[in-house]
């Protein structure tokens, strides 16, 4: 099987991570665009949620897609993490990083933090399990209720910091993984990746902060 022998190499897994990572990134972009409607007033978000629910086929297809993407991304990450552990069984007594970014070195735990966040986030805003007073369909109200609790808000903010870290390296890295690199574009690409990550994480954070500061009610 060609596909399997491809996946059996580290580079194959890495490619899967890049492709799934890219699509997950696009989801984050779309999701942020949806979420920013919160600034337009209470009705918009609820309306947006209702419209989504009116297209169950599309919604479930998207959910299934996301689940598969995340599953593949995480499976490959776990396998590569195991490989990394095996590749250096004896650690250095002293090891200093030179030019690499902190974000690039923490991918193997900024990712899991994101996973933990997503689980909590689903329990919070989709299922309402950890969001006392949760009301099905009242998207705006649920959101405001949740972020008004300082502990939850802080957790969201921290998770968004990890989102920034993961994407600021990830968005650049996926191009390198897919073989795109040229001295003319690499520098700008790195800057763009960092900027996009800031915008995405920042956009999300602004919602949490706006609720916390009472700008959004």
């Amino acid at each position: 099987m060609l596909g399997l022998s491809f996946y059996s190499t580290a580079n194959g897994k890495k490619t899967v991570m890049a492709v799934t990572g890219a699509l997950l990134w696009l989801f984050v972009v779309a999701h942020l665009a949806g979420n920013l409607q919160v600034y337009l007033g209470p009705g918009f978000l609820d309306e947006y949620g209702r419209k989504l629910r009116e297209l169950p086929a599309l919604l479930w297809a998207a959910r299934a897609g996301l689940l598969i993407l995340a599953g593949l991304h995480i499976a490959a990450a776990l396998q590569l993490w195991a490989l990394k552990r095996k590749a250096r069984p004896v650690p250095y007594a002293k090891k200093v990083a030179t030019t690499s970014t902190w974000a690039s070195r923490i991918m193997y735990w900024s990712g899991p933090v994101l996973l933990a966040f997503i689980v909590y986030h689903l329990l919070d805003l989709t299922l309402g399990v950890v969001n006392p007073g949760y009301e099905e369909g009242a998207v705006h109200a649920n959101l405001v209720r949740s972020f008004s609790r300082p502990a939850t808000a802080v957790f969201y903010l921290a998770a968004m910091a990890m989102l920034w870290a993961h994407l600021s390296h990830g968005i650049w890295s996926l191009f390198q993984t897919l073989g795109f690199s040229h001295p003319k574009y690499s520098g700008p690409l790195r800057t763009a990746a960092a900027a996009i990550a800031v915008l995405l994480a920042g956009g999300n954070m602004s919602i949490v902060l706006s609720v916390l500061l009472g700008i959004i009610r």
Partner: peptide
């Protein structure tokens, strides 16, 4: 060997200045 996650420490310490671009070519 482990798998590259494009960290770039290799390029920084390579005594011959081999560039990360070569890894992209490998991937390609």
């Amino acid at each position: 060997f482990g798998n590259c996650t494009n960290i770039g420490e290799c390029e920084a310490t390579c005594p011959k200045g081999i560039r990360l671009e070569t890894i992209a070519k490998l991937n390609r």
